[in-house]
Write a protein that binds this DNA or RNA. Structure first.
Lengths: 231, 231
DNA sequence: TAGATTGTTAATCGATTAACAATC
DNA sequence: TAGATTGTTAATCGATTAACAATC
């Protein structure tokens, strides 16, 4: 029943599956019924070989000489990624960013819903954002345990992030998406992903500076290198 | 003068430099004057060998037998990453997420400031968020050219993102940070980084599902593998 | 059947890790 | 000097790309 991993898929392959899923959803809306690895690769900025390799980590979903049926391939991606299982999520930190996350409609559209929100600021506790009542931190543990929440978003200031993380883990959370600009320490059985805006902006800044430096004073052997990160 | 790349640093190495920078800043606040690659690796969740390798792409900043001086190493990271040069940034899309980005104090703290904001919604145009007046889209080109803005944040809905991207590029923007859940196409001389919340959440969802599947029905050879992504 | 396209294996490429000589 | 720690080179590991046999 469940599509078990055959071999070990690289992290980047999993992330590309999300792109494939999204593209397949869009193709389906357009009424497209079949797609080749070549076509799918063009739409996602990948290569045909990589599409087939990525899919091969999980099974054989196409037909030789024909391609892939959009509907079934999408269903497989959906299953592998656990989309649409209605994972409930908790949010800690309802400041500017946290409020934006509560309002972000990309989450519910993929079947991920923020069902609980917590904040340490008494002025925020009790307020309602998008049908979610902001609770105080001392209700975090019981609420998360009662609702069996496994995923949480951390949108608190850097200084509070490690403490909040520990509370979430103690309450039973298994997956964390961290937005605080800090390197969180988590035990090996807890999964962590991070969105770090400073790192992204500094990376772009580096590329910009480098391209200026290269154009300004270096020989031709370094110019025009593909430093771009295709979307 | 300018620290030119010696050899080609992997993208991930650059991103780790941001972590080193941040950690060095914190060490300096604590009054720590010297640090070893070992110590720095513990604080950033890396390894001592990797710290030294990453730094070696750009130069020799330490002293054998002694370690690194926090102040000078931080200054080098700062220089390499282009931090504190006061890069002005433009924001397109002042919805929930865009507003949060305008208010995000991590940007100005690293010397990146959103100095212009644009939105296609007439109800948002003219409003002021954090000293920035939201301008209509038809002023984008002239404003960006006049202010020589090279970096922009795209926080519009997926369907509008590619069009907005093109307008930004036409106006002279060289670096884009995209928040829309779509794979943007950009020419090779434009740098692109993306923050894709769906991909992050689906990746965590995959790991969670996988760990459940493994625990439920597989032999011991797959259990306990280090699937975690350390912060 | 002939043409197309997958699934898979092998070759290449790049990044990380380990080891150690240089040297403070 | 002896001990410590860097900077760099070599070895390992893993991911991507290319090639092609299988097969629709």
């Amino acid at each position: 029943m469940s599509p078990l991993p055959r071999g070990k898929a690289p992290q980047m392959a999993i992330r590309r599956l999300s792109m494939y899923y999204r593209t397949l959803a869009s193709l389906r809306e357009q009424g497209v019924e079949n797609v080749s690895s070549e076509h799918l690769s063009e739409l996602t900025g990948s290569t045909a070989a990589q599409v087939r390799r990525d899919l091969a980590y999980f099974g054989s979903f196409g037909r030789r000489g024909v391609g892939y049926e959009v509907r079934t391939l999408q269903a497989h991606m959906r299953e592998i990624l656990g989309i649409g299982q209605g994972w409930p999520m908790a949010l800690v930190g309802v400041g500017n960013l946290g409020s934006a996350l509560l309002a972000y409609d990309g989450f519910p559209r993929q079947g991920f819903r923020i069902v609980e929100a917590f904040d340490s600021d008494p002025r925020r506790v009790g307020t309602v954002v998008r049908d979610v009542v902001v609770k105080p931190m001392d209700q975090l543990r019981d609420t998360i345990q009662a609702r069996k929440i496994a995923m949480a978003l951390v949108a608190v200031p850097a200084k509070a992030a490690q403490g909040v993380t520990q509370q979430l883990i103690d309450a039973g959370v298994r997956c964390l998406l961290n937005f605080a600009p800090i390197s969180l320490k988590v035990p090996p059985d807890v999964y962590l992903a991070s969105v770090d805006l400073s790192i992204e902006v500094e990376y772009l800044s580096y590329l910009l500076r480098e391209s200026v430096a290269v154009n300004a004073d270096s020989g031709p052997e370094l110019t025009g290198l593909g430093n771009t990160v295709p979307g």
